[in-house]
Design a binder for these strands. Structure first.
Lengths: 162, 162
DNA sequence: ATACTATCTTAGCCATGGCTAACTTTTTTC
DNA sequence: GAAAAAAGTTAGCCATGGCTAAGATAGTAT
């Protein structure tokens, strides 16, 4: 099981002083859930594109095998997803050859990479251990708005760096 | 071709410094993605259970209509998901009647509610606006580990301006 | 009591994202 | 240069999470 589902800090939260647990107005509530569903749609594609970009950058090549190995997924699954990436104009490749990013894919990768880095550095600046920060950043990055990213960046700049 | 050899282009010994964008070792990378996939599995069920708990608490009843309206989803979708919740022993209900949480569902709801509150309060304490904090918290909450939650709690307690 | 309305369920569709198994192509090795 | 290994693809399975349309049940008004 996942740490984030089974574990919980034992300290009390004093949330009774705050309305944080009251139901938001319906329309706002809908927007929240819609935002989450929306993020989920692109999440996996962003992860692929980000990983492909990193592989190209650090290993010169992005092969399906490497992706499968790093994502912990079968090659067949990678193949299928890559088809989708190509149909969305994010990736370019010849059969049985290395993968490349289109301009659009490049832009998405760069955005994802930057966002990932901001979240990761923020968590570390906050005092979270490296291993945990990496895991949490991977999951959180797709759900952090522009505004929050800016706040995180500022925080890291001002108080960060141990 | 495949250079599974040097994942970490060396140079800096302190990878907490500037290595934030380098590829982590494969096994660690796999763990990161696995954690995300894992979180996704329970994410929706947690959201339902949390919402049902809130509805029971603040409206006395949890009807499919309310859930559909708040989640921005069709009643049919709610019906289907509730079937799954029941099969997992999280929810209890008679056909055409209000929904209730089992003990297990109650526990999950309580956990989700507290985690949600911690993340939300943390974001606000950080300086993120309320609307954005609500949206981001909804997406982030499922990906925040116990360790990070504790750090967030401490931060809110010490520097929080509620 | 009947009819209308709101709520809930079921059936059947689609896309996504996993998997295994079987096959093809490319690369390596001898 | 042929055989073996590795890499990539395709086909077909499954569960999830959306949807619409149609039917069943419950609640409310007349």
């Amino acid at each position: 099981m996942n740490a984030s589902t089974s574990d919980f800090p034992t300290g009390s939260t004093r949330m009774s002083e705050q309305m944080s647990d009251a139901l938001p107005p319906s329309e706002q509530h809908v927007r929240q859930y819609a935002a989450v569903r929306n993020a989920h749609e692109t999440e996996l594609l962003e992860d692929y594109v980000e990983l492909i970009g990193d592989l190209l950058k650090y290993q010169g090549e992005a092969r399906s095998t490497d992706i499968a190995a790093r994502m912990g997924v079968s090659q067949a699954t990678v193949s299928k997803t890559v088809t989708r990436l190509k149909s969305q104009g994010l990736v370019d490749s010849q059969p049985y050859r290395s993968l490349f990013l289109t301009e659009k894919g490049e832009a998405m990768a760069e955005m994802a990479r930057r966002r990932h880095a901001i979240v990761l550095q923020f968590l570390r600046a906050l005092g979270v251990s490296d291993g945990t920060a990496r895991i949490d950043a991977e999951g959180m990055e797709h759900h952090v708005s522009r505004e929050t990213l800016e706040v995180m960046e500022r925080f890291t700049r001002e108080r960060g760096r141990d």
